[in-house]
């Protein structure tokens, strides 16, 4: 059974400059215990997708629409804010990039952990505390009894991220969404946090939606990788397959952007141009203006996400993509 599934998710934000089409018809589904990575640059809609997955977008400033949206088989489309509150944190939880702003600065980390147990499991204070300390220990925090009383600013960045991870796993949810969980950390700490995440996931059998801009971060964790560009998925495949056999020129570009430690001094492989204006996207394929392989029709009509075999999908005319039905003229 799918832990999470969303079909034809669309998100738009009206702004004075025009309507920003942040997410344009995305399908995602995650199996039990699976890790799906959503990769793309800032502004590609990956974070918006993650927020929409838990209905965290402010409905007064955004338009969100999906044909189907389920968590553990339960339909989310008609759930109100009240019902969502009990789902978030219990069945699905989230790990944010900036642990310092995700934690309450005037509350000890232990008290914040307690809340997970008292709110969702109605445990007594003392039991909650014991569970919290256990949770802190499980994420490799030394001397958890002392750390229980610490305030977020008293901890290092890596420790805070560990606390967030402890919080996310505390209620043993079926799904965790991690939005750039290591971007704010130092390189040496990044690897520790990633290995902690993957270990916790394996131990608990949790499904993970991992969001990152960095293919190398994602590759070490994910079973499947979906690459997003300007609000659409441009390529999706099992992680090994995607890295070994990337088809979409943007995926190739992103892979080129991952510099290898054994490269010698010299020029970097670059993708020309910049992201399209989200309020005013190009007519044809969104990547065509930056694409080295673009042909004439790429600038005219939009390609569909097409199956190329081996559960590998790509949205590109040059690699077996078909044209999107609505743009035929």
């Amino acid at each position: 059974m799918n832990v999470f599934s969303v079909k034809n998710l669309r998100v738009a934000f009206p702004t004075p400059r025009g309507i920003i089409r942040a997410v344009e018809g995305i399908d995602l589904s995650i199996e039990r215990g699976e890790c799906l990575a959503l990769v793309g640059e800032s502004g590609c809609g990956k974070s918006v997708t993650s927020l929409a997955s838990l209905k965290l977008l402010d409905p007064s400033v955004s338009i969100v629409k999906a044909d189907e949206h389920t968590i553990l088989g339960e339909n989310m489309l008609d759930k109100g804010e009240r019902e969502m509150e009990s789902i978030r944190g219990k069945k699905a939880s989230m790990i944010f990039q900036d642990a310092l702003s995700a934690l309450n600065p005037v509350m000890s980390v232990g008290k914040q952990l307690d809340e997970v147990f008292t709110l969702h499991f109605h445990l007594k204070k003392r039991e909650a505390k014991a569970r919290s300390i256990e949770a802190l220990r499980s994420v490799g925090i030394e001397n958890p009894e002392a750390r229980y009383r610490a305030f977020p600013h008293e901890l290092s960045g890596g420790m805070r991220q560990r606390v967030l991870i402890a919080m996310a796993f505390a209620s043993n949810p079926a799904l965790i969404i991690a939005d750039e969980p290591t971007t704010a950390l130092d390189v040496t700490v990044q690897k520790q946090i990633l290995s902690l995440l993957s270990e916790m996931r394996r131990k608990n059998g949790t499904a993970l939606l991992l969001i990152s801009h960095d293919l190398s971060v994602v590759y070490s964790m994910a079973d499947r990788i979906a690459v997003m560009y300007s609000g659409r998925i441009v390529e999706e495949a099992p992680a090994e397959e995607l890295i070994r056999n990337p088809l979409h020129p943007y995926t190739k570009g992103l892979m080129g952007a991952v510099v290898r430690i054994d490269d010698k001094k010299g020029r970097f492989t670059q993708i020309p141009g910049g992201l399209p204006d989200p309020a005013n996207k190009p007519e044809g394929c969104y990547f065509a203006p930056r694409c080295a392989e673009a042909a004439e029709k790429c600038g005219k009509c939009r390609p569909k996400l097409a199956y190329t075999g081996g559960s590998h999908y790509v949205r590109c005319f040059m690699h077996g993509g078909e044209r999107d039905g609505r743009n035929e003229q």
Partner: peptide, 8 residues
């Protein structure tokens, strides 16, 4: 708006 964002 919603229709313009749909995907095949």
């Amino acid at each position: 708006v919603l229709e313009s964002m749909e995907d095949g």
